[in-house]
Structure formats: structure tokens, C-alpha cells
Design a protein around this nucleic acid. Structure first.
Lengths: 263, 263
DNA sequence: CTTGCCCACTCGTCTATACGAGTATGCACG
DNA sequence: CGTGCATACTCGTATAGACGAGTGGGCAAG
């Protein structure tokens, strides 16, 4: 038998309303969460308890939960319950993160930055190989057929937060340290500059969308978490695009920050 | 009676698989969409047809659809069917969109840009009023109690794509044309400069998340469409923040583009 | 020909039931 | 004391049925 809910926590249904019952329930739960009646990580009433409280069928309650899941407000754990989704710590990406001065150190920007805020950084899924350039990458790199692709996934405290692929023209990267699993201190941008491609500027394109099933898997995304899709192109001082980096980030783990001149 | 589906369009279920039936159906539909078997705007088989084809119950088929809706791939229209969601035209926001040279003209950046690509722009929900600054806005503007808030919504070809609120310190904006519904040619940035606040740079913070129910309503968002939340702070040459602009954009209608120096 | 209604088809909402599978707890047994 | 199992509670998946409401086409009446 389900114990009854503390009275006053949730209200009653309005049978005269034309708002669907499952939406009314979702509204009440959402409001309770917003007001802090349920805190981050806290367990919501179980399906059975809500069935008793509202006098509706279980599917109706589940429908309410699915609304809240779609909004990214809650997540269900099989065998345990439905919980208010905690807001994970966000990683701030500043627009000067690729400035030359940050490249002096030996470690990669990701590692340095994570260490600074006391997180445990990891990089995995390293893959470096030559492949055919997609139509999009080819266009961005200036009609290149084949490219060197460097794939990796970044984790913070064990949680995957982003994965990225860098594409470089073969005539630049082949046979250099860039084609090695470990590109050496300062990363591939340092190597590019050593190879005579002094970097001039970057162009970043940002989109947001819902993840594909593959992305959900790779980033362990909860329901209702979008991804930020960032495509960066690096140009050298001669105006040639020397790298395209395609990055997919868990949107709940990032804030991007840019500084623009008012010119 | 439901006519049977064209054979070969969709496959069969694998009863030995441990993948849930509704996921298998969603997978097949997703793949068919990705492969172009169903084109943008095209109608998917009705629930009844899929019930017949797969020999499952209607709720199972609906469950599959709800997966695809959550991914933003399809949308349902009551009484008509379920359709592949067309990708709307996107608006590109370049990082120089606030450059002084774009401010010379009389019209606002939004209008000029939309006209350029042949879209029909509109601005509505104009509201200008003094109000108490939220904690966040106050912090960004440097401990300001009350602010002038300018709210508006932008539409392209009748579709709402973004809404924004600008907050300005009262000591700057009160009694000026900035406090009028129509701020005049070049917008509030032009007025700020005339008032002696020469703009130096902007700071933009970007987040992506699922919309609140209020945002769904204001932007007429389909299921599975995230929003891009952009907070811009404008600084004058003395380093004082003179405006905070809080913008919520339909993510499927935007690509943001930034240029960063490699410094 | 036009109007208005009926009907078929569509998705939306809700109920009731059943079984499976993951989790946690307590108790009995070794 | 510790191990392992039974059990109760949780959500996951699926079935079957019912009624409501929006859409569009066809047909009959005017």
C-alpha cells in the first residue's frame, strides 16, 4: 500500500478545466520543483503515490512524467524513482581560450582548465586516421579530398561532456607530429605554428539541437538535454583554412562566452 | 480499413532483440527519414497503418512517435497525421552584427537583414517600462536597483523566432528616447552613443536548453526544439556596463557565428 | 451550383490490466 | 557475523478498449 502524500504538497485537479489531466499534473509538479518544494536530486512521489493522490490511472501519471522529462527537469531511474535533475557544474568557454599565451604550457587547454577548478579531466576514444573529407569539411577547408581526422572525447569527473573531431588537410598534417596520437605540448595549434602556419583567426559556428541516438550514447545524455554543435575553422595569416574542428557538447555542461569589439 | 503499407518501406520487428519494440519502430522510422524515404513535410504512415504493419497495439506506435518527436524529427497534427518536420530557414548571426557601420542606417539590424534575404520581418509585443532589476541583471549592470526594460518579439514570415529584453540603468535611459517605444534610427545603441556612452565591446554568454512552457507558447515551438539563451552585456569605453540584453531564440532558426582573433 | 451535413480517418486523452526487470531491505540460514 | 534469498517497491513495456475532437471528402438537399 502506498502511503498518502503530505497534504498541501500538491493540489487537486480541476475537472472543469479543458487542460488535459496529465498536463495539470505536470504543471503542479513543475511548479513544486520551481518553488523548491522538491530540491535538486530529490525524489518525486512515485507513480503509485500520484495515482492514489490524483485518482487517475498510471499511464496518465507516466504521461505527466514524460512531459517533465522532455523539458529536462526530471529523470527516472529504474527501480528507484523519478528525481529532480541536478544542474551539473558548467564549463565556461571563453573566447580567448585559443589565445597564443594559453598555448605556452605543456598541457592541453582542457586539462589545465579542469585542474584549475578542481575537476578530474580525462580524454579518451583517441582515434587518428586519414579519411575522405565530408562535403561540408571539404568546402570549409577549400576543396580538399582527403583529410587527417583526430577524434577524441572529453570527460569531467568521469562524465563525458563533449566529443570533437579535428580535420586537417593532408598536405599539412601527414607525416608530422599532428598525425601522432599525442600531438605534443600545446596541442595541434602549437604544431601548426611550428610548421609555419601562423594562426590568424578562428571562425566558430554555433547551433543547438536535440542529440541523435548515437550522441545520447556517447555523451550519456539524459532525456531533455540538447547539444551545442560548434564548428570551428582555423585560418593562418595567409587566409588559408588549416583546420576544421567539429565539436558536440552536452548543453547542460557548458556556457560559451564571447567578447566582441563594438568596432 | 487501413490500406497496407508499401512493402519494403519499413522492415519487420526482431522479437529476439532485447531492444524495446517501440524503439525498434522508432529506429526504422528514423532511418527511413534519414535515408530520404520520407521527405521534409511528408506524412508518415498513420498510427493505424503502423499498428497493422507491425502487429502491435496503438500505444506502442504512439510511443515510437513520441521518441521521434522528442528528437525534433517529426511533429503531429491533430486530424491530419504525423509529418517529417521541415528544417526552417536559419538566420545567421555574425559577430560583427553590432558593428558601428551597420548602425548608420535608419532601420534596425533585424529588419535590414531580413529584407536582404527576402523574408518578411515583424517586431511585436513591444513593452517598455521601469522595473526592479533581477539579481542577475543587477549584478551584470553593477548593482543597479531599478532598470528600464524593453521587451520585444521578432518574427520572420509570421513565425516567431526570438524574443528579447534589454535592461538599461535608469540614470542612463530615463527621459531619453531610449524610454520611448520607438528608439529611433540605429536603435538604442545609436542613442547610447549620442548620450556620450561610446560603446567599446560586448560580452555574450550562450547557453542551450529546453524551453519552458511559456517559451514554447511565445515562440510557437514544436516538440523537440531547444532554445538558445544569449545574454549580451554592452560596455562603454569607460568600462561601464550600459546595457544587458537577454535573448531567447528558437534553436532551429539560428546559427550563431563568431570570429575570434588568434592573438 | 452552393450549402450543409454525415462519415471516415486522423491524432489526443484516459482507463485498466499484465508482466518484466532493477533496487533496496530485512530476515533466515549457514 | 556474513551471505544469500525472499519480498516489496520502483519504473519499463505492452495490450485492449473507449471516447473526444480536428480534418477533409462526398453526397444530398436546397
Amino acid at each position: 500500500m502506498s502511503p498518502s502524500l503530505p497534504s498541501g504538497l500538491l493540489g487537486d485537479l480541476d475537472p472543469t478545466s479543458d487542460r488535459a489531466v496529465f498536463r495539470q499534473i505536470a504543471d503542479q509538479l513543475r511548479e513544486a520543483i520551481d518553488r523548491g518544494r522538491f530540491r535538486e536530486g530529490e525524489k518525486l512521489p512515485s507513480e503509485a503515490e500520484l495515482v492514489d493522490h490524483y485518482g487517475v490511472s498510471r499511464m496518465t501519471v507516466r504521461n505527466s512524467f514524460s512531459v517533465l522529462q522532455g523539458e529536462g527537469l526530471v529523470h527516472a531511474e529504474h527501480g528507484k524513482g523519478v528525481f529532480v535533475r541536478p544542474r551539473p557544474p558548467v564549463r565556461r568557454l571563453a573566447s580567448d581560450r585559443f589565445a597564443r599565451r594559453h598555448r605556452e604550457q605543456g598541457k592541453s587547454a582542457f586539462i589545465v582548465e579542469a585542474d584549475a577548478v578542481g575537476s578530474h579531466p580525462q580524454v579518451d576514444s583517441l582515434e587518428v586516421k586519414e579519411e575522405k573529407a565530408s562535403q561540408d569539411v571539404s568546402a570549409r577547408l577549400g576543396s580538399v579530398r582527403r583529410v587527417l581526422a583526430r577524434r577524441r572525447r572529453y570527460l569531467l569527473d568521469g562524465r563525458p561532456v563533449e566529443f570533437a573531431t579535428s580535420y586537417l588537410p593532408l598536405d599539412i598534417a601527414r607525416g608530422t607530429q599532428i598525425a601522432e596520437p599525442n600531438p605534443g605540448p600545446g596541442g595541434i595549434y602549437a604544431r601548426l605554428e611550428e610548421l609555419g602556419h601562423r594562426l590568424d583567426h578562428f571562425e566558430e559556428e554555433i547551433r543547438a539541437r536535440m542529440p541523435s541516438p548515437a550522441e545520447v550514447k556517447t555523451l550519456h545524455l539524459a532525456a531533455g538535454v540538447p547539444v551545442i554543435h560548434l564548428i570551428r575553422t582555423a585560418f593562418d595569416t595567409e587566409g588559408r583554412p588549416v583546420e576544421v574542428c567539429d565539436t558536440v557538447m552536452a548543453a547542460d555542461a557548458y556556457v560559451l562566452s564571447y567578447q566582441l569589439p563594438a568596432t
